[in-house]
Amino acid sequence: MSLTPRAFPVLGVAAWSGTGKTTLLTALLPRLRELGLNVGVIKHAHHAFDIDKPGKDSYRLREAGAAPMLVASSQRYALMQETPGREAPDLDHLLSLMAAHQPDLVIVEGFKQAALPKLVLYRDGIGDSAILQSEYLVAAALKGEVGETFNASIPRLNLDNIDEIARWVIDWTRAFSEDKR
């Protein structure tokens, strides 16, 4: 397995559409926060999206050519960068943007083909179980049958058991930190 060394652990969460990646993460993130982990997330979007609203000053400034456009308040900030005619940003570049925030862990949702350790979610009947054959697979959260080709040395987690998955993520993150010492 050839992985890029990083200052913080990066865990990919990969699954076929409809498996419940976002549902799992919205339940998992509060648990990880309760357990003391500062977790960043990078989500891959397969379509155009906009976090800004027409009519707002930031939208008008961005439309006028501000690139990048950063909006900040005492509650949050958002950096928007237009990328027309360019390829999607490289995952390494996106991870470099996270470094300044010193996360304990960054979870990457999507980016199925990226060379990074992956927690693969698989629900019987949704997509192809071949997703469980990734060379970067470090654990699988499953619901249903996966067949006999699944590597028995890979941890199997119950896709419906958030506590079990949270414990595994904590242990995996700690092991990364111990390996960095």
Rank of each mutant, 00 (worst) to 15 (best):
I165D: 13
F49M: 10
I126W: 00
Q75D: 14
K143P: 01
K53G: 04
H93F: 05
R76I: 07
Y136S: 05
G144R: 10
H93Y: 08
R174D: 14
A141K: 00
E63H: 10
E178M: 05
L70D: 05
Q102Y: 00
P89R: 03
A88I: 10
M98E: 15
T19E: 04
L91Q: 04
R86Q: 15
Q81A: 14
W16I: 07
T149A: 15
K112V: 03
S96T: 13
A115N: 13
A64P: 02
I170L: 15
Q113S: 12
I51N: 14
P9W: 10
R123H: 11
G55N: 11
T4V: 14
A72H: 07
A152V: 14
K53H: 13
A130T: 15
A141H: 00
K180E: 15
L61M: 12
L119A: 08
H44Y: 04
L11S: 08
K118A: 01
V169R: 00
G127N: 04
A141M: 07
A66I: 08
Y136T: 05
A72I: 00
D52P: 03
R86I: 05
I126D: 06
D128P: 10
A166F: 00
Y77K: 02
L142E: 10
A115H: 12
L119E: 04
G127Q: 02
A100I: 02
T22A: 08
A14P: 02
Q81I: 07
W16M: 11
A67C: 13
S129I: 06
M80Y: 09
S177C: 06
L157K: 06
R123F: 06
G65C: 10
F49G: 07
Q102A: 15
A140F: 02
V146F: 10
D104L: 04
Y122R: 03
S58R: 07
E82W: 06
G144V: 08
T22Y: 07
E63P: 02
L91S: 01
V120P: 00
M98R: 00
L35I: 01
A115M: 10
E145P: 08
R123T: 09
P5Y: 02
R123P: 11
A45T: 11
G125K: 09
P9C: 14
I42V: 15
L142Q: 09
